[in-house]
């Protein structure tokens, strides 16, 4: 055989790694499935309804908005599915389905596509949509009513443990009893249905780290910061810290939302700063804010700071000599003085 057809001439490299955007999104979806199963077991089948509505409307919204904007179709990259899943996980099981659908549409159309689509939005679509829903439908978004046979208390337990121990104990008489730490870990307590089962979330997180989809830097920095600050606030009360870590949306946020590629820094240093920042804001909101929960707000706030963090932490090209800042300052000073004279 000889060379008959025209040979393909393309730029090097000629080999490519097997990783694709779709593959990465699929990994995220796989990592979310344990939490979905846990939620169905704990809260019942309505979980599936809400999830399907969110995912379906997210994909449809992505399809239509790309069509209207006359851009190439992107639904096959599965990112809209991930956004739909994450939004669903941040909703109470009792949410009216039309609100869930509206949330997906806001996430995809307003937050993602209006800024240019995947990779361009500066805040996490699912979180931004959740916050918009929280402000627009405060009662529906805080309706923790459930017919789950596992859950005795309906309120999200964080509401009762935002203050250090002494204060909690003074509450316990009035509120229902706190779930045990084991129940907290397994997810047998109130809250958004995707955030309750810490076990499933951590399993998903480990999967993502092992598959190298996310770096553990942000989750560890984030959760670690909350733990340390809460330990200080709780005057060394480890039980209080444990409730803080397992309750609310901290694990879901730290593992799945704060690590969103588009809205977190690229460098390791940047990721650590980002994680610590999220941790500090979450702690401050939980302890001093009027809201019981601060994860969504803190991630969104830090999302906005990402361009600045990137500027500070971008690595210098290989071999760039280290600038001696003191010497530089001294040189500048000398220059100025020389200019004066």
């Amino acid at each position: 055989m000889s060379v008959n057809k025209k040979l393909t001439v393309s730029a090097s490299p000629h080999v490519r790694s097997p990783h694709t955007v779709t593959g990465i999104m699929l990994d995220v979806i796989i990592a979310l499935i344990p939490s979905l199963i846990a939620a169905v077991v704990i809260f019942g089948y309505r979980v599936l309804m809400v999830t399907l509505v969110c995912v379906g409307s997210a994909v449809l919204a992505e399809y239509l908005s790309r069509k209207v904007m006359k851009r190439h179709q992107t639904i096959s990259d599965l990112s809209a599915v991930v956004t739909g899943l994450l939004l669903a996980f941040n909703l109470p099981v009792s949410i009216p389905l039309w609100i869930a659908a509206l949330g997906s549409i806001i996430a995809i159309v307003v937050v993602k596509q209006m800024f240019g689509g995947i990779g361009q939005n500066f805040v996490n679509p699912a979180l931004a949509a959740r916050i918009i829903l929280l402000m627009s439908f405060p009662s529906a978004m805080a309706n923790w009513a459930t017919d789950s046979k596992f859950i005795t208390t309906t309120a999200t337990p964080l509401a009762s443990i935002t203050r250090p121990t002494e204060i909690i104990t003074s509450f316990v008489g009035e509120t229902e009893e706190l779930p045990s730490l084991l129940d907290m870990f397994l997810g047998l307590h109130g809250g958004c249905f995707g955030e309750v089962c810490s076990l499933a979330l951590i399993a998903g997180g480990i999967y993502l780290v092992v598959r190298k989809v996310i770096s553990p830097a942000i989750p560890l920095a984030y959760i670690g910061t909350v733990a340390v600050l809460m330990l200080i606030a709780g005057i060394g009360d480890f039980e209080f810290v444990a409730y803080q870590l397992l309750g609310g949306g901290l694990l879901l946020g730290a593992i799945f939302m704060a690590t969103d590629y588009t809205t977190c820094p690229v460098s390791f240093k940047g990721k650590i700063i980002f994680g610590i920042g999220c941790g500090i804001i979450t702690t401050v909101i939980r302890l001093f804010g009027s809201l019981p929960e601060g994860v969504s707000f803190s991630i969104i706030l830090m999302n906005l700071l990402v361009p600045h963090i990137e500027k500070l932490t971008t690595a210098k090209p290989f071999g760039t000599p280290k600038v001696d800042k003191k010497a530089e300052k001294a040189a500048k000073k000398a220059e100025k003085e020389a200019a004066k004279v």
Binding site: V21, I118, G119, Q120, T262
Partner: peptide, 24 residues
């Protein structure tokens, strides 16, 4: 060699991570 479909950058940072010259 499998050819990947060209898509929009998702800002995953892998390109910067692997660059031996620390470029972005």
């Amino acid at each position: 060699f499998k050819v990947k479909p060209e898509r929009d950058c998702i800002r995953c940072g892998r390109c910067a991570q692997v660059c031996p010259m620390s470029l972005m």
